[in-house]
Structure formats: structure tokens, C-alpha cells
Amino acid sequence: MKLRRDLELIADWIRPGSHVLDLGCGDGTLLAHLYESKGVTGYGLEIDPENIARCIARGVDVIQTDLDRGLQEFESDGFDHVVMTQSLQALHFPDRVLEEMLRVGREAITSFPNMGHWKCRLQLALGGHMPVTRTLPHHWYDTPNIHMCTVHDFERLCRARGYEVLERAAVDRHHRATPGARMLPNVFGESALYRFRRAG
């Protein structure tokens, strides 16, 4: 099965044989791929019951958990990588979760839709309404995405909290790293991916 391209990017960042925690692991696609292709061990955390059954069907070790409750069940430094794809913006306390990711894991990997993309900027600046795009198809009143941020916002938070960004990828709707997104990630990146750790 072909892996979604952003997951492929993330998989490339993960060392073979490492112990991985995937927050909001969905149907377990990424972990199943990592188990198989990289000899990785580890767990997915997921809240949706249907996804739990899908993970099980794939042989992924999934723990049904509400991420907003934190990761208190996990000991510090238990994982090599803690991954969270496209969930940051849907959390009640994204900053606390980032902090928790770097407590239980030596490195964190996250991705999120970039509110700084030019289409979002245009819709808000000229249209005067909250952006609705193919990456962000919801309206303001029914969106699960309650904490939107831009590439700029995220990096500012990293600096403020003392996180060192190890790698960054800004990609378009098809999760391709276009030249524009490489040059001006906060304008041409529809999604951004980061690998980061605590500095020092």
C-alpha cells in the first residue's frame, strides 16, 4: 500500500529499530508501516472507537486515550520519537502536549496545517472571512481545529520554550515540497512538518 506522502516524509525521519509513540494515530497506517519497514516498536494513541478497531486489524498496538488528558501514563524518556500528525490544531492545550511529547520522548515530530498559507491570508484579508480551503474544509462554527497557527507562530513557540528545530518541511496540498514552499514556507506551505527536541 502506498503511504501518504507526509507520512513518508515522517517515516524518513525515524531511525530503524527505535521505540515510537504516535499521538492521534488514526487508523494506524504510519505505525503499521514503521513496524514493517523499520523494525520499529511502539504504540499509537487514539480516541475514536472505529479507528481503534482499524488499528487492531492492522496489528498496531493502540491505546485508547484522550490526548487532552495528557501523557501521565508514560514515563519520561521512554521513547525515541513521539509523533503527532495533523492533530496539534485540534487540541485544547497544544503547548502542554508539545511539552509532554518532549518529556516522554527524546525527539518529537509534528505536522499541522499552516494558517499562513497565501490562500488563507487572501481569504481573510480580502474576503474578510475565516479561511476555508481543501486542507481546512470546515467552517468556523463546526471546525475541530480550534488552535490554528502559522509556521511563524510555531517556530516562535519553539524559541520561547527552548526547543531546537532539527528538520522542517513545508509542503503543498499533495504533500510535495515545492520550491516555493522551500523558499517561503509560511506563504507557500499548506502543511508544515517539524522534527525537534529540547535544546542543549
Binding site: D61, I63, Q64, T65, G78
Partner: peptide
Amino acid sequence: LDTHKRVTYAE
């Protein structure tokens, strides 16, 4: 989890 055993949990 603490000893890296394989486990799935459903609530």
C-alpha cells in the same frame, strides 16, 4: 507500557 510490552487498550 513501562516495560515496552505489546499491549492494546480499548475503553
